[in-house]
Amino acid sequence: MPRSKRLLASIHDVGPGSFTAVEQLIDLFEQRLGERRFAMLVVPDHWGNHPLRDARAFQTRLRAWADEGIEMFVHGWYHRDTATHHGAASFKARHMTAGEGEFLGLDTATALQRMRDGKALIEDIIGRPAAGFIAPAWLYGEGAMAALRQAGFALAEDHWKVWDARTDAVLAKGPVITWASRSRARTASSLAFAALARGALGALPCVRLAVHPGDTTKAALLASIDATLARFVRSHRPGRYADLLA
């Protein structure tokens, strides 16, 4: 029976410093998806230590992946959050990420400049438009949301939805399935959520799954990712984010 539901899989934090882990995750995806129908979220200069602009060999590889059909999203600029937060943003910065919500506290002008710079750099490398913009840790402040409407991206997503960045129209709903490697407690909770999701999210018309380079450091995480992919490819067709705009 044809699978009308979609599985959108993505590899986050792609850059020169994560090359080996990214290749391992690509191999895992290909074993289950059967083709390069997934997305990569590219960081132009991860934490200021891995500038994509200077990494010629990695640029060549990135373009080859794009030529093979992998969608490329702009994923912040530094990925690191250096802002001072207050109120609800302070809670999100402390509990939803480990200092990586770069776009949570930026003003509109700064957010827009980083979005446009990232878009120009990555599009020049891959030779085609970027698929969209996804903020590090899926966290957007008011300035980032205002900037996103001006930056010229087609798509954006957060923890709970994918939307048209030009019109704010919601294109898919549901929690993204992801994993955490930075502490035992977070690893355990992410494994538990993935197990729950394998049973509870099958009815969704669109399931999203996101992995990170750090996931390759723990065998339990890799096993859970593999089991989750195996579960959803039975009911959902691996697709591209751009399909949501069709």
Rank of each mutant, 00 (worst) to 15 (best):
K5S: 11
R6K: 13
V14K: 06
V14M: 04
P16K: 09
F19S: 15
E23D: 14
E23P: 11
Q24T: 14
Q24E: 15
L25D: 09
E30Q: 10
L41W: 06
V42H: 01
D45L: 03
H46F: 13
G48I: 00
P51Q: 00
D54G: 04
D54Q: 14
T60V: 13
T60I: 13
R61F: 12
R63Q: 07
D67L: 04
G69C: 06
I70H: 02
H79G: 04
D81E: 10
D81Y: 06
T82D: 02
T84W: 05
G87R: 11
A88K: 15
A89D: 15
S90P: 10
S90C: 12
M96N: 12
M96I: 01
E100F: 08
L106H: 06
D107I: 05
A111W: 00
Q113T: 14
R114L: 06
D117F: 03
G118S: 05
K119G: 05
I122H: 05
E123S: 09
D124T: 15
D124Y: 03
P129C: 02
W138G: 04
G143W: 05
M145E: 15
A146P: 05
R149K: 11
A151F: 07
D158K: 10
K161H: 12
K161Q: 15
R166I: 03
T167E: 01
T167Q: 00
V170W: 00
K173E: 15
V176Q: 07
A188D: 10
A195T: 13
A195F: 10
L201R: 12
R208W: 09
V211Q: 01
H212R: 09
D215S: 08
D215T: 10
T216S: 02
T216I: 08
L221R: 02
A223H: 13
T228G: 01
V233M: 08
V233T: 13
R234F: 05
G239A: 14
R240C: 09
L244K: 11
